[in-house]
Simulated assay, not measured.
Amino acid sequence: MSKSKHQKDVVAQQSFVFGKKNYTFMAIGMAVIALGFILMAGGGSDDPNVFNPEIYNFRRIRLAPAIVLLGFGIEVYAILLNPDQKKKS
């Protein structure tokens, strides 16, 4: 019986890989990436025989990819962030 109690103690001591602060930054990064992809969408034409130059506007070519890259940067920061580090006074 003590073996099963020991297993329960081990399971109870397990925790998440990252802290709450890491998961918060990961959620922010995912939201920024999603925003970038939403901004990238659209600009197509209803008729395949008609070209729509809106597909090459600033928002889809420059802004949206930059926002996606910013989101990936936030994700990297969230992974590398040490939530146990104390602030320097």
Rank of each mutant, 00 (worst) to 15 (best):
L63T: 12
L70H: 04
G19A: 11
G29P: 01
D47Q: 06
M1Y: 09
P53I: 11
R62G: 12
D9E: 14
Y23P: 03
I33W: 00
D46L: 08
V32R: 02
H6T: 11
L80P: 04
N49Q: 09
R60L: 08
A27M: 06
R60P: 09
S4P: 03
S45W: 04
K21F: 08
G19K: 06
I67Y: 04
D9M: 15
V17E: 13
K5S: 13
N49V: 07
K21R: 14
S15D: 15
A34F: 10
K5E: 15
A27G: 15
Q85W: 10
H6F: 12
Q13Y: 06
V76R: 00
L35W: 00
K3F: 15
A31Y: 02
Y23N: 10
N82G: 05
Q85I: 14
D9Y: 04
P83K: 09
A66P: 06
A66T: 13
I67A: 05
M30T: 07
S2A: 13
V17F: 10
N57E: 15
R62P: 00
F25P: 05
G71H: 03
I67M: 05
M40Q: 10
D46V: 08
L70A: 15
P83E: 14
I28K: 01
H6Q: 14
D47N: 15
L81Q: 05
I28Y: 01
K5W: 05
K21G: 05
F58G: 07
Y56W: 14
I67N: 09
D84F: 14
V32Q: 08
D9K: 08
A41F: 05
I38C: 03
Y56K: 06
E54C: 03
A78V: 04
D46E: 15
G42L: 02
Y77A: 09
N22I: 00
D46F: 07
V76T: 06
V17C: 08
S15M: 13
K8M: 12
F18K: 01
L80W: 02
K86E: 15
S89V: 14
N82D: 15
Y56H: 07
I28L: 11
N52T: 08
G43N: 05
E75P: 01
Q14I: 11
V10R: 15
